[in-house]
Amino acid sequence: MKKLIAAALLAAGIGAVSQAHAHRAWMLPSATVLAGDTAWVTMDGAVSNSLFYFEHHPLNLDQLEIIGPRGEPVEALNRATGKYRSVFDAELTNDGTYTFEIRRSGLAGMYKLNDKPVRWRGSVDEVKDIPEDAEGLRLFEMDNLMQVFVTKGAPTYETFEAQGVGLEMVPVTHPNDLFAGETSEFRFFVDGKPAADLDVVLIRDGIRYRDQVDEMQLKTDAQGSIFVEWEQPGMYWLETELEQPGKRLDNAKRRMSYSATLEVLPL
């Protein structure tokens, strides 16, 4: 059955997208809990199949933003892009929690022109520039958010606020206060409203050293919350996706995703 669907998608010319979908985009921090007057964190970013291994593409850092504990912008330093991963550093001078995030919103599309598949990206205004003889045009609205939290000194909550666009996560348990054997609550929102019945996946690092991925699958309750019982310490990748009818365009689909890298320490 899966093969049939894949064949149908390929025939429709969107195989490239379903393939890209299998890959996971992520950031991996050198540490999430830091001490000292000033501290540095270095971050890897990549797109890959297996977490957290560099084996496919470096992460595009164009949309990267670092938000300090008081909402202040922090500069990403020493940026570099390699074959399989991107890297940058940040100096943490204030105490509190820093959010590293990449928000991507926009339109993506695909069509055939003279029998050749074309992938398109742009804004609502640019849709009119798509050639009139484009065949099989399919448009998608995208709202993707990726976050990593890092704390120097005592954790702070002040910058955890949903902006009201796409899928967002507002931690109830502080994301830098996660310990094996404890339960943590995270709340999800879609366009600022609690996202009920959302499927959330959590995958622990070190996949290469075990036979099964052992992903945790959770569903948000009516308030949009999941309660995660951490059995083992480690670096976890959290992801959730949602597809809805288009908001900005008629006859388009809207694809939203949220992902985060969370570190769970042993007690």
């Binding site: 809990v33 830091l34 001490a35 501290a39 005592a154 954790p155 310990f179 042993p266 007690l267």
Partner: peptide, 18 residues
């Protein structure tokens, strides 16, 4: 030397980080 205080994991959580 302060950099490594967080390695006292439980103490850091209960007191040190504050």
């Amino acid at each position: 030397g302060q950099k490594w205080l967080k390695d006292l994991r439980l103490w850091w959580r209960r007191s040190g980080r504050q």
